[in-house]
Amino acid sequence: MTALAHRRRARRLATAAALVFAILWGLPLLWTLSSSFEGSTTPGSRLLPSDPTLANWEMLVDPGGRAVNIFIAFFNSTVVAVVSTVLALLVCSMAGYALAKLPFRGNAAVLGLLLATMLIPGEVVLVPLFQQFRELGLLNTYGALALPHIVSLLGVVLVRQFIVNLPPDLIDAARSDGANAWQIYRYVVVPLIRPALTTLGILVFLGSWNDFLWPLISTSSPSMQTLPLALVTFRSAYGDVDYGVVMASAALAITPPLLVFLFAQRFIIAGISNTGLKG
């Protein structure tokens, strides 16, 4: 067999194996979606609903007082995720630029401190974070839900590494044209770090969308619940009665992050691999 034929055969085998894994990974998602339209209460593992109905999805809007309207939780999650993402892009890119290109005393120490702080698990700072927001009067507000995601240490480091790898000539040229730091950041750096910003945006969006623990601790009214919290109440309210409703709520919750990841996964991989350890 020629080398070309070998390569073709290997590619076909790899594609077949990937297809098998894709089907295995996708089956639970397909089953979730199918079960969300299942009207029969007889437990089963069918891929196609035996008694198709939209009633489960209607129950999401009016759960009869047993859980929060899932679309309210969807709205809350959307607000938090979008605001977190937009502000995180602004804050982290500015911080990354300052660390990469603005000389100031203690630059290296600040970077080292950021890296060291990334090792601290989030659970360790839950109590002081709660205290801080309590003193600021921000508990049970969108501010409490969004602010912890806006300052992303990983995001600052990611952007900083990306900017460090930019050709210094561009920035030098802008400086000699009379551009100040803000103009260099706004007109030179930002257009060049779009891949890193895309990656950061996706990571912050997914992180804030999927966050369960902090919204659980910082909210105290059902109408401020985010989707992960609402899913828990749906599971408790309907898990032993009607799992079709539970599947409908799960299908709604996983759709936005799944779509974000499906369309943007190459940016995530490219962005993380581009940070490297250079500079």
């Binding site: 309210i72 605001v83 600021l136 507000t141 969108y142 501010g143 109408s223």
Partner: peptide, 10 residues
């Protein structure tokens, strides 16, 4: 941002 609560929260 800090002052915003959910429009559905009464």
């Amino acid at each position: 941002l800090a002052g915003c609560s959910s429009p559905f929260d009464d």
